[in-house]
Design a protein around this nucleic acid. Sequence first.
DNA 1: ACCTGATCCGAGAGCGCTCTCCCACCCGCG
DNA 2: CGCGGGTGGGAGAGCGCTCTCGGATCAGGT
Lengths: 346, 346
Amino acid sequence: MTETVPRPTLEAVAARAGVSRATVSRVVNGSDGVREPLAERVRQAVDELGYVPNQAARSLVTKRHDAVAVIVAEPETRVFADPFFARQLRGISKELTAHDNQLVLLLTEDRADHVRVGRYLAGGHVDGALVFSLHIDDPLPELIQRAGLPTVFGGRPDFNGGRGGVSYVDSDNRGGARDAVRHLLGLGRRRVAHITGALDQTSAVDRHDGYRDVMADADPRLVARGDFTPASGERAMRELLGRHPGLDAVFAANDLMAAGALRVLREHGRRVPEDVAVVGFDDMLPIAEQTEPPLTTVRQDIEEMGRLMARLLLRDLDHTGTPEETSGARPDGLILPTTLIRRSSA
Amino acid sequence: MTETVPRPTLEAVAARAGVSRATVSRVVNGSDGVREPLAERVRQAVDELGYVPNQAARSLVTKRHDAVAVIVAEPETRVFADPFFARQLRGISKELTAHDNQLVLLLTEDRADHVRVGRYLAGGHVDGALVFSLHIDDPLPELIQRAGLPTVFGGRPDFNGGRGGVSYVDSDNRGGARDAVRHLLGLGRRRVAHITGALDQTSAVDRHDGYRDVMADADPRLVARGDFTPASGERAMRELLGRHPGLDAVFAANDLMAAGALRVLREHGRRVPEDVAVVGFDDMLPIAEQTEPPLTTVRQDIEEMGRLMARLLLRDLDHTGTPEETSGARPDGLILPTTLIRRSSA
DNA sequence: ACCTGATCCGAGAGCGCTCTCCCACCCGCG
DNA sequence: CGCGGGTGGGAGAGCGCTCTCGGATCAGGT
């Protein structure tokens, strides 16, 4: 059926244009040193034959692959329940394709996968890696750094030995949390509670820190621990209501938990926002818009985050010519601003 | 900092083991014809040097890449708002890595991207493609098929000239819809309305067809058109309520629209499920569980779908040796069963 | 007119691997 | 004890490209 037509080679193009392989190569790769009439003839031959360079042959000699790995650690299914992943991927994809790089996706679940990923990276198939490590003490980040590939992390990683020189992109979780709490204070609320996320993730820790920055001397009983799931939001809300019935506001570390909290508040006859104001985090759509009432929340530009990760990495990869600059001048972390989205819940 | 140590080559391993390159190659690729004492010596040399084959050099001669492209067309952002994409990707990823294949992700948005994708596929970087085309009359599928690569589609594609021989994996949208409607009838409902999805997608068409299979002679005014968004669900529900106030059940083509319908029903003082029973489609979490009341819906095993797509493709790719079998015996479509998940809304 | 230098292009090596020969060796048989 | 078939292992070509190097060409200066 589909006859596998042998693809034209550099040689063929050269023959047709009546030049040497070297010249065709020069034209194809856009290097100067080929005068106009000749260059045009080559370009025409390329078009006529529909020539496309063989990437394998090329990287065999250049040692570049124009490909980067995106590694997503997802021991839990939860990662996949939210739409962030896709957004981030899209940001990355856009930036990558704009620079003619391919995106090789590596999804990992367990230790066995880690080994595989390590081998893959060491195997020199890609020029760099973009890594999403969600959990503190995840061995993956270190493992990857040790592979010696240029790497950018999504979300602040937490290395045991903070060696510095780790580049990453993250949202301003702490600042966003501060904004959320200040907004509640601005509404005249004084007993602002907090439902934390899973504290084995830096984002949850940072949001909690942001809350404490503003509510430094608040009653510690105003803080209940959640794990980012809706059920944990409900549980935490009940807990808070039980031990601190007088609370007049809640800042949940994500929208899912905020949605859970909302349900419990309604159950208990508390009106939102009149009796208790609620603020979430993420602006996870369509959830945040669909709660009752619609959720006031902290938005992070997740797609931009992906784009920046890719940009950072690509810039690193271009530094091939200057070995001296490679060691110093590394931009450690890049923090993206967040925006408070005001809906009806606060 | 990270000294780029030159990776050991086949040559180096051969030297260390005291054999020829060919022998090492044989051992590494698991082909027989190397006797045990020698083979062991080679394996040891491989370990000691930490040898990893250079994929570029390998595919240069084998013309295989052990990589498949996953192409996602997403002219609209909507695709990214739902978690399906990620699930499917995970299914694909699992199957692929189990067979030592890489996943190259290609996200497209507009015509320009189509050209790029076409070139990429023609460029022979991957052995096959997995394609998600969401819209009828999307030019991408044809374009990809023309590239001559083995391809499997996610969701029933809609070619103008139904040439057959197109392999795809899809959920049993029609059967699932029938189940949903029959369930409503089983509840004693008689005036069952339907909110369609965007009818430029085969999934929406099929679900609509399923509804009509069961409600063949229903009042056509019981059908309102939506486009899979929550807002369209609300709009459609209002429309239905307006022109057919006596309806006692609604089958929405997805959960997002069902959630919108639920809100409108509440607004109008209709109790769910007492006055109006509601069934959705997708079992999109966490939405489906979080509505009030929790949604009865049709679940599709989205991860399995991804896995099957990959499996189908890989099987196709293995058929390299037998050119005769390639033309015939192609499994056109694979339809996955759906399950009705009973919650409180119906 | 001759030399110098810059510029353009071609020849050829070689990237790391696979795979087809082909030779050497082992065994069993006559 | 020699011969043939079978089998294990090596030699070497070649996949399609890049890139260095050197030769040719051309211009300008003296």
